[in-house]
Design a protein around this nucleic acid. Structure first.
Ligand SMILES: [Mn+2]
Ligand SMILES: [Mn+2]
Ligand SMILES: [Zn+2]
Ligand SMILES: [Zn+2]
Lengths: 165, 165
DNA sequence: TTGAAAATGAAATTCATTTTCAAATAACGC
DNA sequence: GCGTTATTTGAAAATGAATTTCATTTTCAA
């Protein structure tokens, strides 16, 4: 599940964590929900990594900061984060839902190794243009698209040929 | 779940059904499995439609031809068809796996209405080129890609504005 | 025709996700 | 601060699609 860094975007700074937290708090107020310590802790854990996390994986990270926080709360908070644009779901087609934080990040696509689950992020503005173009052609009000490439990474190919069963 | 026809590809002819059946039979022999009436019936039902069917939906169609065929056999046969290239899974991101037949069809992508579930098929060779290009750049041996656009179709938008709750 | 291997279909199981519920907590006005 | 009330929480239960199990039936090569 390791993920190669192919861009030079820095990790999230203290400043940015605060700003993201503000976004969440404003969202909560807007929809009449409450600010809680759990939600803040979960957001901070989520921002800490650039990985594509399952609810379960995030729950494990969260528990390092506060072992009393339950899986259900992580699950529900992830939905809230998606609602206010801080998180987005990435479907790697491996049967479980994954999320990545979307705060201050370039939009990008993924190429996934079907053998080890590793992934590479890449940028492809052409594809976003296609969304607009096709939407216009068939009169859809488009909101998003998914583009993913599947294959086998170099490491896995080497491992395969080293030990041909 | 209706799907607009945007190309002029004809429905599958008797001739083609036979050819597809041959592909399945050869595959079965190759991997040491047996030819059965159930598998043939399921394949024929599957070729009958150009829709994107869930296992359950296909099972219902199959039952019209032979009510004794069980869900499990449909499920297993769909995997076999995917193995020999006659079917491919399309993930519309609605939580259930869908398949479409791939026999004698142009490869294409989908734009899906998030409100009614309807879809439009479109062709976009640029995207396939991107698969090659990105794969080469990051040393992946690519096998496939998914490209889907999500939005709201014209009909649904009209319905929305007609009855604003 | 026959025996071994595979296929079948109902039922059971799995497993991620979602819901339920009683107890704890946050927010608002006073 | 205090009380009120709606929301939140986390454990447990429920859900539901996908998958496996298993006893029985069927295929097919010899
Ligand atoms: Mn990513
Ligand atoms: Mn299609
Ligand atoms: Zn790999
Ligand atoms: Zn629609």
């Amino acid at each position: 599940m390791l993920q190669k860094r192919i861009d030079d975007q820095p990790s999230i700074s203290r400043e940015m964590v605060r700003e993201a937290q503000d976004i969440l708090h404003r969202h909560l107020k807007r929809v009449g929900l409450k600010q809680t310590a759990q939600r803040d802790t979960i957001l901070r854990s989520f921002l800490d990594t650039r990985d594509h996390l399952s609810t379960d994986e995030l729950h494990r990270l969260v528990q390092k900061k506060d072992p009393s926080i339950g899986y259900t709360t992580v699950y529900r908070t992830l939905k809230l984060l998606a609602e206010c644009g801080l998180a987005s779901e990435v479907a790697f087609h491996d049967g479980i839902a994954r999320y990545e934080h979307q705060y201050n990040r370039r939009s990008h696509h993924h190429m996934v190794c079907t053998q080890c689950g590793g992934s590479v992020e890449f940028f492809s503005p052409e594809v976003s243009q296609l969304e607009q173009e096709i939407g216009r052609r068939y009169h859809y009000a488009t909101t998003r698209h998914t583009f993913q490439i599947y294959g086998v990474c170099e490491d896995c190919r080497n491992k395969n040929s080293a030990q041909p069963a």
